[in-house]
Every structure is written in structure tokens, then in C-alpha cells.
Design a protein around this nucleic acid. Structure first.
Lengths: 141, 141
DNA sequence: TCAACTGTTACGATGCGTAAATGTGC
DNA sequence: AGCACATTTACGCATCGTAACAGTTG
């Protein structure tokens, strides 16, 4: 999971390795449809395309997709994910907008923590229901 | 949460108390739209209606709605929720179909436990991301 | 009669699944 | 020439949100 993607044959080390969508989707654990959808809504653009139109991704995009996948349990909307990614990009770039990007990231951190609380609450509720069902399904009345 | 709904004035104890949709939705923590939707798809039918068409629910329906709300974090489809509720009803009725109802409930118990595991996994992932965001948002690079 | 509540109908958004028909890479 | 992989387009589904407009209750 933390290991780099297998290198395509015929690529020398040091160059940026490019991967097709299937390879990437499989690696990250998303469907092709989902990866394309994320592109459609502006979350992840492939690094390039082949002459014939095949999407080609490099490591940066893969990391981005992994991040997005991590965000999913938080229940963020695409809009929010896009903003979050943009804020990170801005920080990465280190330009004059770094400050506001910091603030926005902080906001999302708070949101994430809030969602975590909700998730914990949901989990407790689900566990309770699971116990209840198990009991009902094995009890004679 | 475990306490009964406030009793409408003018109702003597012992009779089945009836409540309008707003009261019920508010009590259970669902939107009016959602309660109506659940009716539309056959999950919960109001006990009766007023002359003018207002939905009236009794305690049984309220319990049903609470159960449904508990199921939500499990990510069950409406179909599955319906089946689960039917199985419970069948058990409650205590007819000759009790056995298969038991089995189906057992299946849903297993499903619920599986979902709990997934939820826990999601939670861990979310917590990891939250920590990461918090760190990035407060760190100077 | 008025405020607060409720009714139905219908269109919209989200996040993909899934299929169809076709093209690309090797 | 073949086989796995990819492309676009498009319709469908689930789960409600959100009007819009009208009727009901007390």
C-alpha cells in the first residue's frame, strides 16, 4: 500500500513512470468509472494522453487519487474535495496565497475531525443494532 | 431518546397516542421528506390519516422509524431494510414462517457485523487523514 | 381569520454502475 | 490479426433536498 507502483517494463529508473488507468485504478482501489468521474469533475487530471487517447498517470496523480480515496469516508462533497486539494496545491506551490490556504486547510481539518466524531457515533449505533439483530435472530420467543 | 414521545394534550393515557409527521420526524431525527420517502418505498405506513389527509403515526411506527434510522449507518439499501423489517414482523407474528425469518435475520446480523468492520476501517482511515490535515494546516514549511 | 402545519407533484444533485459501440496498444 | 485494454456517450438508480402551490388544523 505504501510501496510504489510496479514499474512498467521498458522504462528506465529516474524517469517519471506513466501508468494507464486500469493499472492505477487497481492500485488505488477505485473503479475505472470512478477515476474518470473524478477527472470529469476536476479532481484529477491525467498527466498526459497517448496519441490514441489513453490516459497516462504519473506518481503525483496516483498520490492524489489515494488522498481522495481517504477522503471518501469523510463524506465530503466533490466540491469540498476539490477545494481541499487546491489548498494543498497552493501550499505546495508556496506562493503568496499560502496563508489563506493554511486557513482553509485548518477548516477542513476541523471538518474532518467533526466527521470522525459522527463516524464514531454511527459506528456505535451500528454495533448496537448488530448486537440487537444477532440476539433476535438466535433467541426463541 | 428512550423516553416515550410527549403526549398530545387531550389524550388520556392508555389509548394509542397519535402524532403528526412533524412531531415524529423531529423526535426520530429525520426530515419530513425522508419520512415521506420511506413511506413511498414501503418502509413505514402511517397508522391512519385525518379527514384532511394528515398522516398520523402511533408508537409502533415511531419505533419502526427509529430502527430504520439505526440501519442507515450500515448502508443498507431500501430493499434490504424492507426485508429486514418484514422478517422482524414475521417473527413478531409468530406464524409458521418464523423459521425462515430467523434465518434471514441471521443473515442481516452477519451483514451488519460486516458493515461494522468496514465502518471501523473507514473510521481509522478518516482519523489518519484528519491528523494529517491538522498537521499540514499548522506546520510551516 | 390567521399562523403553523401538512399535502402532492415534480425537477435537481450526487456519485457512481452498467451497457453499447468503437478504437488502441503491442 | 488478435486480445486485452482503453475511449466516449448515455441512460439508470438511490436518497433524498428543495421549491411551488394548495389545503388543513385549531
Amino acid at each position: 500500500m505504501a510501496q510504489p507502483m510496479s514499474q512498467a517494463p521498458g522504462q528506465s529508473a529516474g524517469t517519471t513512470e506513466l501508468h494507464q488507468i486500469g493499472e492505477v485504478a487497481n492500485h488505488v482501489g477505485l473503479s475505472l468509472r470512478t477515476v474518470r468521474y473524478y477527472e470529469e469533475v476536476g479532481l484529477v487530471q491525467p498527466a498526459q494522453r497517448t496519441e490514441g487517447g489513453f490516459r497516462l498517470y504519473d506518481e503525483e496523480q496516483v498520490v492524489r487519487l489515494e488522498l481522495i480515496k481517504q477522503m471518501k469516508p469523510l463524506g465530503l462533497t466533490i466540491q469540498q474535495m476539490r477545494e481541499l486539494l487546491e489548498a494543498r496545491d497552493t501550499l505546495e506551490a508556496g506562493g503568496p496565497d499560502s496563508k489563506s490556504a493554511h486557513e482553509r486547510l485548518g477548516g477542513y481539518a476541523a471538518l474532518a475531525e467533526e466527521r470522525c466524531r459522527e463516524l464514531r457515533s454511527s459506528l456505535r449505533s451500528a454495533e448496537k443494532l448488530a448486537r440487537q439483530l444477532r440476539e433476535e435472530s438466535s433467541t426463541e420467543d
